[in-house]
């Protein structure tokens, strides 16, 4: 029977947790994930799709369409991940699922 968990793969953390809180926490992470992915998709594919017209805007020598592909999107990616990390780390505490110190 393959549908059992091997002893050393067993995980902890659920013991004594409030079911509703777990649900709310997961709903929050799903929401934050979706927001993050929407921004990610718009910055990557949205900007690339209209890069030609964005190029008519020139800032500091940079055509905007080119800039978004070369650097702008990267800055936003870095921000997205840190934003996600800080919000999730805070949510851990708010929902009482943080790691024990």
């Amino acid at each position: 029977m393959a549908d059992v968990l091997h002893e050393e793969d067993k995980l902890h953390g659920l013991e004594g947790m409030d079911k509703q809180k777990l649900k709310d926490y997961w709903a929050y992470s799903v929401k934050l994930t979706i927001y993050t992915l929407i921004v990610w998709a718009v910055v990557t594919y949205g900007c690339a799709a209209i890069a030609g017209s964005l190029n008519s805007i020139v800032i500091f020598g940079f055509p905007l369409g080119y800039y978004m592909g070369a650097q702008g999107s990267l800055i936003i990616y870095v921000w997205l991940i840190f934003n996600y990390a800080f919000k999730m780390n805070k949510a851990d505490k708010d929902y009482g699922v943080e790691e024990e110190e």
Binding site: G13, W26, D92, V97, E99
Partner: peptide, 9 residues
């Protein structure tokens, strides 16, 4: 479910 929460890592 337990993979999804940090507690117990």
């Amino acid at each position: 479910e337990s993979v999804r929460i940090p507690r117990g890592a």
